[in-house]
Design a protein around this nucleic acid. Structure first.
Lengths: 165, 165
DNA sequence: TATTGTTATACTCTATAACTATA
DNA sequence: TATAGTTATAGAGTATAACAATA
């Protein structure tokens, strides 16, 4: 039972010198600062991009579900969605099954804006991180696995008016 | 000339679907929130860990250099170092060559505290990200390469009273 | 005059608590 | 009574501007 999972065992006696957190914290901070200039013409910030990405990839979601998916407090979601809705990038719809709920969907304009922004951000990442295509792919896959684990398992996408891609 | 660097060429016509920024933003936000509880007994936050790590790995640094290395405004460094100095984890020393400058070094107590914290953070990362040892190593190396590039080339370490490791 | 570090201040991001409406 | 969303408010985190000491 003890050695079931040998692959994941770290040696706890020596100081771990492969700590991800400092690097993640640094990169995210730098990213937010750098992206601000690039994203300003779009009237968006990184976390708006995160929210739009979730809505495109996962489909229609209640605000409470978005709060969970984004790892943000529900109250922060309100302001975030207000920003996006004022630009018609998302829509809030009263759920008929439960009229307390607002279901949130990305609009066609939101899909288009997101695609534009993604090109901008991809360019920024290339400039900033200087990774090859292979390295970027490898890093993406590892980060996505970590994200899925941190979010407590993968979310299943829901059919919606998908962005034509 | 156009295809010199084929490995790094992305197809700019299709929407890039391997964007790192949303994942980095999400993971860093979750990390800060989760680490708060674990690090509270140490009186530290993630960015303190980042600062201590830089001081241990890079050695003595002026505050202006720390500002650059951490990607933070110089004014933020002051408060950050005040926190650490009040716990005797770092020291500020007037530089004799240029008495305007404060050189910052990590203390023995800082080294010990950092080692303890690193174990705590490593445990948090294992719980949260659920990656194997190999994946963690791979992710670490990619993040470090990206960090070095974002910081504008690797910094050369400076000899100092190194933490006995 | 320019630079290092500091203080005071404001702005942004996120979290806590109280309120509305539905269930 | 409990839940989804909202508002108001406070608390971190970070940046901007003005100041002191030194170059």
């Amino acid at each position: 039972m003890l050695n079931m999972n040998d692959q994941t065992v770290n040696n706890d006696l020596s100081a771990p010198d492969e700590l991800l957190s400092p690097l993640l914290d640094y990169l995210a901070r730098r990213l937010r600062a750098e992206a601000e200039a690039d994203l300003h013409p779009f009237g968006l910030k990184i976390r708006h991009v995160v929210a739009l990405t979730v809505l495109r990839d996962l489909g229609e979601r209640a605000q409470s579900q978005m709060s969970e998916a984004l790892g943000m407090d529900a109250t922060g979601i309100v302001a975030l969605l207000n920003d996006l809705e004022s630009q018609n990038l998302i829509e809030r719809r009263r759920a008929v099954q439960d009229r307390r709920r607002h279901n949130v969907v990305i609009t066609g304009a939101g899909c288009r804006r997101l695609a534009e922004v993604e090109h901008t951000v991809a360019g920024l990442e290339r400039r900033m991180f200087g990774l090859s295509g292979q390295e970027t792919t490898a890093l993406y896959q590892l980060l996505q696995k970590a994200t899925a684990a941190a979010a407590g398992g993968p979310e299943e996408p829901v059919a919606g008016e998908d962005c034509a891609r």
